[in-house]
Design a protein around this nucleic acid. Structure first.
Length: 140
DNA sequence: GCCAACGTTGGC
DNA sequence: GCCAACGTTGGC
């Protein structure tokens, strides 16, 4: 299984809205960046991801799961753009902020630190476990 | 609201 | 294929 991180501005698409979609999940559309798209193409059913609030909040607030692999983005006719569907799995018991991540030596190689502007990022297994523990999850 | 970082576009 | 101009992102 691979791990990812999805960034969203909460006033555009928030964790609360994502959770409200329940098991059906929601298309992660609107991505117009090749690297982010390539990351989504690489995703497999069941892959896990962090849900990060950018601009406001600046913290990882929840965990999502890929529930549909890459398909054409329904918000454009341009065949270059594809997206996956994700569904909310659970809240972070304690949200992990960007500030904390930046202050943690073990997480200095995270894309959040090194490629701040990339909206869909890969996360390594070590980083995943580390952030989960910081957020109060021992088993994810 | 500012501005640095960075991706994209388009003229040559 | 270079590079300047421009637009967008996102932390502060």
């Amino acid at each position: 299984m691979n791990y990812w991180l999805f960034k969203s501005e909460p006033f555009k698409w928030s964790w609360e809205m994502q959770k409200a979609r329940g098991e059906k999940g929601e298309e992660w559309d609107g991505v117009r960046n090749y690297q982010a798209r390539n990351n989504m193409r690489a995703m497999k059913l069941g892959d896990r991801g962090f849900f990060y609030h950018s601009n406001e909040g600046l913290e990882i607030v929840g965990i999502v799961e890929v529930c549909k692999e890459a398909h054409p983005d329904s918000t454009t006719d341009d065949p270059r753009w594809e997206c996956v569907d994700i569904k909310a799995v659970r809240d972070m018991p304690r949200p992990v902020s960007l500030k904390e991540i930046k202050a943690t030596p073990e997480l200095q190689d995270m894309s959040l630190v090194t490629s701040m502007r990339l909206s869909v990022q890969p996360v390594t297994e070590d980083e995943w476990k580390f952030v989960c523990r910081m957020g109060g999850l021992d088993d994810a």
